[in-house]
Design a protein around this nucleic acid. Structure first.
Lengths: 224, 224
DNA sequence: GACAACTGGATAGTCATCCTACCCAGTACG
DNA sequence: CGTACTGGGTAGGATGACTATCCAGTTGTC
């Protein structure tokens, strides 16, 4: 398959394919001469994957590249796979030791302190999860706080209940037949399912609000 | 409060504040003379909100602006609020009538057909949710499919169960005391909680994998 | 074997987004 | 009075993701 055919069957412009080749997002074709190479289905699949991750997944090419790196060079343990797969290529890969020190003393890091407290309350060992995830969660809590939005521990508990139940099912569904399948499942499934998840949540909001407020007036009137 | 003080208490550079003022992300201060204006706490709050939505929320300034528009000029019904709040400023505000026509005939739109089928199976009226949400969900399903990842209806059902339970609780928690509080809750809560949600899911993955694969070897070994 | 069409490889240009720097005349205040 | 600061405006820069153009080599066709 020549590059123009690859472009045709993947829907990606030739110039973009060349660009992806240069970035290392797409593996080189088999060279048949100095100025000729042939591509196969693996290149079509890769291109579709990249476009899916970039398009709906909303990822940067840098993050896609690190996902590809994990798929091509899988880590040794299942657990090791989950951390990097979660936030590969994201900002904030800072040192984790600093987090152990702070523990609700630093007024600047209320969100991170809350994460530690919650993990303790939930009976979760902080060591079994990645500090980068703690940081993300802390940042998210801080952002919610900063924008003047209150989120009770009760509400957080609801999130934990439902999401960990979901996560457990997802992990349980991980194929164990081959390492390639498992790596693909995690590296692609974790980030690609995210937009789906958020869409279903919004669908749920609309469904629930239709049930509660169906045909009812604006909050102004409803409150009176 | 002068602009430099506003900058100090919000942590946003003066040049950026001017930029936000020009874009309409920040309301003008009260002019005291031709070249002087005074700002108050509402400006500090707004700046913090904008930074939270842009930073952790990962939104574009355009989307932040449309969220601000909703907060400043709320829609008439609760239900009307949820649609725009969900995907304000996102790409894909296409015509919805086209979706009614397709109904699993178009091979190009398998994801969207699946959304319609799922909604029917779940007993949800498609009319009570926004077609833009259907489109997002369809796109997400297509992207998952395109990248060579299979997602069973069973797994989708799990997502629906947990996320709609969560969404229902979130909707139930919407304050009805004042319209301002309700609008703020929805317009900020829907998008800002998203990163938190995803972080907890990843935490759940790590927790679950620690329980299952604790100390176990790589999938290669485990599979044998 | 002439010749247009295509190839890989490289360089440079485009477009959008999000700021950042600078300039300017007009206050504020010690 | 002088210095610092203000709002307002324009221009510039950084980044990310392409896109266009050029070029020498290759392929298929007549």
């Amino acid at each position: 398959m020549r590059i123009s055919e690859l472009s045709g069957s993947s829907g990606v412009p030739v110039a973009t394919i060349k660009f992806y080749l240069r970035l290392g997002l797409l593996h080189d074709g088999r060279h048949t001469s100095a100025t000729q190479a042939s591509y196969d289905d693996s290149h079509v699949d890769r291109l579709k994957m990249v476009r899916a991750l970039v398009g709906v997944g909303g990822m940067s090419l840098a993050r896609v590249k690190s996902i590809i790196a994990v798929i091509e060079n899988p880590p040794q343990t299942m657990h090791e796979l989950l951390g990097p797969a979660s936030l590969m290529g994201r900002p904030g890969d800072v040192d984790c030791d600093a987090l152990d020190v702070l523990d609700e003393t630093d007024p600047e890091a209320t969100g991170h302190a809350r994460v530690h407290r919650l993990l303790r309350e939930w009976g979760w060992d902080p060591a079994e999860s990645f500090c980068s995830t703690h940081i993300e969660m802390g940042d998210a809590l801080d952002a919610i706080e900063d924008s003047g939005f209150a989120l009770s521990d009760l509400a957080l508990g609801d999130y934990r209940d439902h999401l960990t139940a979901l996560a457990a099912k997802e992990v349980a569904r991980t194929p164990t037949t081959s390492s390639e399948a498992a790596v693909r499942y995690v590296a692609l499934g974790v980030p690609l399912v995210e937009p789906l998840l958020l869409a279903i949540r919004r669908l749920g909001h609309q469904h629930a609000s239709a049930a509660i407020f169906s045909g009812s007036a604006a909050p102004e009137q409803a409150a009176r």
